[in-house]
Amino acid sequence: MPPPIEVHDLTVSYEKRPVLWNIDVAFPEGQVIGIVGPNGAGKSTLLKAIMGLIPHESGWVKFYGEPLATQRLLVGYVPQRESVDWDFPVTVRDVVLMGTYGKLGLFRRPGRAERELCDRCLEQVGMQSYSRRQIANLSGGQRQRVFLARALAQESRIYFMDEPFSGVDAATESAIIDLLRQLKQQGRTVLVVHHDLQTAPEYFDSILLLNMRLVAFGPTRDVFTTELLQKTYGGRLTILSEAAEEVADTRR
């Protein structure tokens, strides 16, 4: 059986500047995987490139051996909270219900089954009592949980989460950890962009160290070593970003 996500030779540029160089990796099934690296290392970019949100210059990505176009329904996404306007006139339930839209197809509208699913997902993240609230009236952690519930409603086999732990309260943090554990028990694969080195080893089964290129990927205890972290966060790779600047200059 092919791996859930296989990335081959992926190079991505933002505004003509290469930000990811030749990423080659295959993620194993049923694990919670952290993507860790310094600011500007291209963590979110990697996630978005894998999901086809950013065009890549070279390489390909396969989900269970198939290209993304045929596998969209297998992929759930939890974007960063800042990516939407929280004044938008929708309730918590409306947002979670959106998670079911992908499966419905054109013209079909969510029915009873979908609404029940959405209630279950809300319960899973402990937000059932907020379901009729407008999203503007939620705290940061609650907003994060709404996004998680929406992703759960997608019922995907693979989940991508972009910095779910950043700036959330303790209750949300433990809710997310519980959720990650459950998803893992159900044999799903979860990729989490994470920036906090302290908590990384306790959250993740495997870790991908990233700084414009893949520094290391493997089980947490093998990868989370001083030497490799030094390499990820250390100065030797600045040449890559300098070279990226020059590439951008000539392409401009």
Partner: peptide, 12 residues
């Protein structure tokens, strides 16, 4: 330094 596999190096 970057430990790219050899087949990737050439093009870059």
């Amino acid at each position: 330094e970057v430990q790219l596999p050899l087949d990737h190096v050439d093009r870059d």
